[in-house]
Design a protein around this nucleic acid. Structure first.
Lengths: 161, 161
DNA sequence: TACCTAAGTTGAAATGATTACAAATCGGGT
DNA sequence: ACCCGATTTGTAATCATTTCAACTTAGGTA
């Protein structure tokens, strides 16, 4: 699919009875091109450049609408902010607790059906792995001779890999 | 294990080189008795009754320390607040998006080892299912003839089952 | 094509969870 | 009984998200 073709996103919205607005198209297109699981502020900052009147509330409203209609997934993998993923393809995620980056993980869950058939109505399935990504492991090894950095869990780490 | 015996929690802390304080014992015991995945405010409100001088910051500090040493797990299943689970026994969770209750789910992941052996250093594994719990499904069916309640995703729902 | 109305957008203000910080207190080794 | 570094406390930030009311617009209709 041509991710730059606006017609596709128009159709996605129409198919679900959602009104087509420039903002929704903008956000939908952004998420389909940038598959790095951005948070609201990242999306906002990026899109504001093309559309200075864009409001952060619109990002929240739009993401909620898109999520309700299965066009985006809300990842609650981080302790602090929600992250977003275009589409509804089922896959898992790895969160690096150092650089806060999220990686897609392709693993199937054969026992999942047991859950889907039970007394619960399952709308979403999330597999989250958390730890250190290869890039940060390498970076960490490099710095080991300088100081043995502590690897913490709860707090947001703003350092980048 | 006798969940009311303080000695056990003293030992758990000492084993990990953590200082033993009344607050830590209080919180650790609370989590081991109340397996309903409380959030910080719930823990705080409950424990403040026994100890009126308790500070919410202490709950945050303690939970962070306990999580770092594998005595509690941080669940990022909700879009809004972190929820906590005593122990490090690996199991999954179901979040009811109506009543905000979390259920323990016992499912093993046979393909998990592939992830654990890879280039990523995996410290945590979380399986989150989200949807409607049996209790809310029943409640919802009961109210159907009155009004067809919308089932939303993103926002916090304060209604109780 | 012009119009109407419900739905969508905007920005400012409120809320709520979490963190930062500095002063007071305490655990546990000497 | 002392001491020191770790812990606790309360207050004040900070930051993500929601609320709300006024304004604008998409898209159906005359």
């Amino acid at each position: 699919m041509d991710k730059n073709n606006t017609d596709i996103y128009v159709q996605l919205l129409k198919d679900r009875g959602l009104r087509v607005t420039p903002q929704r198209l903008q956000i939908l297109k952004y998420l389909n091109i940038h598959k790095n699981h951005p948070d609201v502020t990242t999306i906002f900052t990026a899109l504001r450049k093309e559309n200075p009147a864009l409001s952060k509330t619109t990002i929240y409203n739009t993401l909620e609408a898109l999520a309700e209609h299965g066009l985006v997934q809300v990842l609650t993998i981080t302790p602090t902010e929600n992250r977003f993923d275009a589409g509804d393809r089922m896959h898992h995620h790895f969160l690096c607790k150092h650089c806060n980056k999220i990686y897609d993980i392709e693993i199937e869950c054969p026992h999942l059906n047991r859950m889907l058939e039970g007394e619960f109505k399952v709308d979403e399935v999330h597999g989250y792995f958390k730890g250190s990504c290869p890039s940060c492991l390498k970076e960490n090894a490099k710095n080991d001779h300088i100081q043995n950095k502590n690897i913490k869990g709860l707090k947001k780490d703003t350092s980048k890999c």
